[in-house]
Write a protein that binds this DNA or RNA. Structure first.
Lengths: 264, 264
DNA sequence: AACGATTTGTTCGTATGTATC
DNA sequence: TGATACATACGAACAAATCGT
């Protein structure tokens, strides 16, 4: 009652979208701003303020020259974070995509030698500024940009024989398997940290997110350890939060634990 | 160059906040809208549009009558999702909070009997509309609202002796331990699904999030199974995404895997 | 307690640009 | 090309919150 008009209008429209059954289904077009001006007795700017609220909440999207439409979100891509502690995630990415009947792909990696920033140095337990190899992947599913991944390896791995780490080419068998074969250092465990934050400019461009940064991204940092509990890599993967979902299994979870995909 | 003016202004201000060292540190006040009008040669509405972008990205917050300030985010609370597959999360919540030197608390639970909605019925493998017990907790850390949790238990557990499930009082030893003791059904595994979405009205009010819904929430759904792989509960926990972080450990992760808390 | 100054919040009007059909 | 619909930008007025006097 005491709310400003633009918020009352937004709440009214939200009700029409979220009611069961929805009065405005996904994909449906909202009345134009001019029509809404008449319906709610408000000016165009006030109507637009209300619609901005709905955009921020991800309920609608606007297309210049066309109109305002209720969003229908795509099927989220589900990734399982728990798995064989000795396996790298590139293979897991490919396997899971195929499991869901989707087509994974990725570009050739970007490989750089860098001085370790503080967060990288802390995770790898090396001095700040010590040299590390950074390998950066851009991955797609069904042709749409899906994740940005950067792995940091301590230079000691290269010195002990894992020379392909510093070559700007994909390692088909996966970096984890390659390191085990090349210098006998085996991944034995890993720890993931899952956070959500706003995207930066690169991420907005790559994922084609709305420019105002209202869609956030998952940032998953994986620190992997060898059998002597020494950290052997830090992998940071960024996913758009609106198209992804993660699963963690603990104990012997029954296999038909597949959740039904909510059709959008 | 071709960007609209409000976006160029926002980018310029963002640079002053994100540069290293920041020209505008967390907690610092931005120039007033009137000052920015003069500085950028734009109208007040255009300045306000730029500031709205920064608000959406979580870089600044406005306080009516005071000004616009660079946000300093609190230390995230870290929860570990992997643990003993036989333990419930209430005890884990309390232990982890104490580990970080913080004070956990929660209100008496709200207990309801409900017909299972489709998602609940699917997870518990019972018919849609079958009766379930819903137990809803509101939890706090250091006095600030931290999570909303609802657990759904199939009525069969009550029929087999777990009568305290339907009493509107906390189960001090934890519901999982209680069920094991009361009717011999032991939790043997669980599967978590982690997603991010916009908050609803209840969540905005409880977590005191900005009313326009730009801060999203984690929704973690845990389906727990007994030793016969039958689902015994579905627990949905909602956390504000801006103050929480989750950890998943796979394999025998070394214990000093504690990450340094980035001081804000 | 009252008041005024400052600062952000809401709402209107208007004009022009750009994308789509 | 014209019509439609959203995007950007300006100006103006008043409301509401905050703070100091």
């Amino acid at each position: 009652m005491n709310d400003p008009m633009y918020r009352r209008i937004a709440d009214d429209l939200r009700g029409k979208i979220e009611s069961d059954p929805p009065e405005l289904e996904p994909g449906a077009q909202l009345p134009t701003e001019i029509v809404l001006m008449g319906r709610y007795g408000a000016s165009r700017n006030t109507i637009r303020d209300a619609i901005k609220m709905l955009i921020t909440r991800g309920l609608v999207e606007t297309r210049a020259g066309q109109g305002t439409f209720v969003t229908g979100r795509p099927n989220p891509f589900v990734s399982t974070l728990t798995g064989d502690p000795r396996t790298g995630e590139t293979n897991v990415f490919i396997m899971q995509a195929h499991l869901e009947g989707r087509e994974p792909s990725f570009l050739e990696p970007t490989v750089e030698m860098q001085g370790a920033e503080r967060s990288v140095a802390t995770a790898l337990k090396i001095p700040e500024g010590a040299h590390v190899v950074s390998r950066h992947y851009r991955r797609f599913i069904d042709g749409t940009p899906w994740s940005l991944q950067t792995s940091f390896y301590p230079m000691s791995l290269v010195e002990r024989g894992a020379l392909r780490l510093i070559q700007p080419a994909d390692i088909a068998e996966g970096a984890v398997d390659y390191i085990a074969q090349a210098c006998g250092i085996k991944q034995a465990s890993y720890s993931d940290s899952i956070a959500v934050r706003s995207p930066d400019g690169n991420e907005i461009a790559f994922f084609r997110l709305p420019a105002d940064g209202r869609v956030s991204v998952f940032e998953i940092s994986r620190t992997a350890f060898d059998e002597d509990d020494a950290p052997i890599r830090l992998t940071i993967t960024v996913y758009p939060a609106d198209r992804n979902e993660f699963v963690v299994n603990v104990g012997d979870v029954p296999t038909p634990a597949m959740r039904d995909n909510e059709a959008g």
